[in-house]
Write a protein that binds this DNA or RNA. Sequence first.
RNA 1: CGGGGCGUAGCUUAGCCCGGUAGAGCGCCUGCUUCGGGAGCAGGAGGUCGGAGGUUCAAAUCCUCUCGCCCCGACCA
Length: 490
Amino acid sequence: MADDKKLTSRAEDFSAWYNELVLRSELADYSPVKGSMVIRPNGYGIWERMQRALDDMFKATGHQNAYFPLLIPESFMKKEAEHVEGFAPELAVVTHGGGKLLEEPLVIRPTSETIIYHMFAKWTQSYRDLPILINQWANVVRWEMRTRLFLRTLEFLWQEGHTAHATHDEAEEEARRMLGVYRTFMEQWMAMPVITGVKSESEKFAGAVRTYACEAMMQDNKALQASTSHNLGQNFAKAFELQFQDEKGGMAFAWNTSWGLTTRMVGALVMTHGDDNGLCTPPRLAPIEIVIVPIWKNDDEKARLTAAALTVKAELTEWTGRGATDRLRVHVDLRDGMRSGAKYYEWELRGVPLRFELGPRDLEKQAVFAARRDTRAKQSLAMDGLPAAAAALLERIQNDMFQAALNRREANSVRGRISYDEFKVLMDGKGGFVFAGWCGESACEAKVKEETKATIRCMPDAEFRSPEAPATCLCCGGPSKAEAVWARAY
RNA sequence: CGGGGCGUAGCUUAGCCCGGUAGAGCGCCUGCUUCGGGAGCAGGAGGUCGGAGGUUCAAAUCCUCUCGCCCCGACCA
């Protein structure tokens, strides 16, 4: 009886835990179209926080937002060879409009490289027109066969950055810069550690020269690709005749990059920080940072404590110690007919990072009883100086959540000599990240995938590599050309 | 597309084998008592049993077809 109020535990069935959490915390719900979902206010609120944080960073790195249309001529998708091949299986195509068969079918964008570089070509004549640094917030459609709330749906929301540069080096620098922006976002906002690196040939974006990615480890020890940043070289420029006249008067093709991050990050948040009680949102991304639950027994107390709670809220939200535009986000739960205990469970399920209980005894002491969502630790906080204390506590929660996630990832990462047989056992067991050598042959990569379902998540950037470079390939035992992170992935 | 499971009230489901007035728990509404970790009592609203055919005096139940969803695999952010 009380059991159906509890989530399935992560240990019991991680997948069921995830689905129940997402549905019951009202992050999202299934829509009538198979494989697509409704993002409910609780989930969308988190996405909005993500958008704001990222958008500020994009602006700070010189990008402007624009919007390109949903429908793309089918012929555009076919202009870049690898791009066609990569996306053909998952395109949704519009064949009719206004009741009539269209002369040329229109695809619903799975990504916007084609339409954007077509337009860039129109806008670019001279090297003086470069660089073009554009971002767009949009929805895209990819007809996936196997779907999962937030992690893989037919339609999802994302941002896609698209840039054009005069030189290869500038484009490479841009791709790396945006990878860094993503990393900062994930570490500082999502409190989610990531490993940055470059993708292998088989895992790179269809049409890219090189794909960089941030890889995170979920609580089931599987890897999740958290974002990608591509150096597209001149592939699309050539396909869409994106040319410019350089300083010397000659014609040259531009160099492009694209980079994206999706609503999948809401799922990443759940699988990084959620526990058996529900979601746990890092404060910086929490639509509500503090929920105040007043406690009363009778009408007199109800009146007094409601007033007190609203006063506390006002003091918290009026405080500008974090800056005038970054006020504490506070909600007072005044619902009647619901016991305080029931409210605690609900706000814990929804992942509000900090809860203030305010009853007659606290009021007497001029304090609130504060409960952290992440550690569930409780302490009394004096009303005097409460806003600053609350802000400090939220910051500590943010940092502790990152540290806990980092510790978990490190505890489940394996470095150093590992035999292929040991690797197989590990992948069939608890999983995790394995830092091991790779000979560079796609045959080895394919064999490992076939036999263990694990793939090369990335060839990590220098700071993530092992102190001693692996000497041999995990699979064939031949000389290693690059250290790779091997793991099963979402 | 292969394998598995499921469609009965908003949710979780019993009933189906063996045909005969559609039940429960949670949630919701009203009232009273409660209220420092998932409240109690009383009353109440809510169903074309996924859909279409068929068998039958009679179908949630049996038969045929169909639609949808979820889970596991192949593809992917």
